[in-house]
């Protein structure tokens, strides 16, 4: 499953921050901090992820998708559920 999710999430992040190099993102880095995403960017990220994977991340769960790793984990748990 993660084989499909990871490229989708990276594509969404790339659209938001074309100049960012996701390869060099430190493990466990907070996406908002690292990519300087404000609330509008993060909302667009959540919307993009929803469009790409069908997973609706409620606001209450934003803390659980704060890093790339936790986000992928969260999406894997909820995808197709």
């Amino acid at each position: 499953m993660s084989d499909a999710i990871r490229p989708a999430v990276e594509r969404v992040l790339h659209e938001l921050r074309p100049e960012a190099d996701l390869e060099t993102l430190p493990a466990g880095a907070d996406l908002r901090e690292e990519l300087d995403l404000d609330s509008m960017d993060f909302l667009n990220f959540v919307i993009g992820v929803h469009e790409a994977t069908g997973v609706d991340i409620p606001e209450a769960d934003y803390a659980r998708v704060s890093t790339l790793e936790t986000c992928l984990e969260y999406l894997e748990q909820h995808a197709g559920a």
Binding site: L43, V46, E59, A60
Partner: peptide, 17 residues
């Protein structure tokens, strides 16, 4: 806003701005 956003589709969520 939190309560409202729970009822809104993800693409229509509100931000304080």
């Amino acid at each position: 806003i939190e309560r409202t956003n729970q009822q809104r589709p993800v693409a229509e969520r509100l931000l304080p701005a």
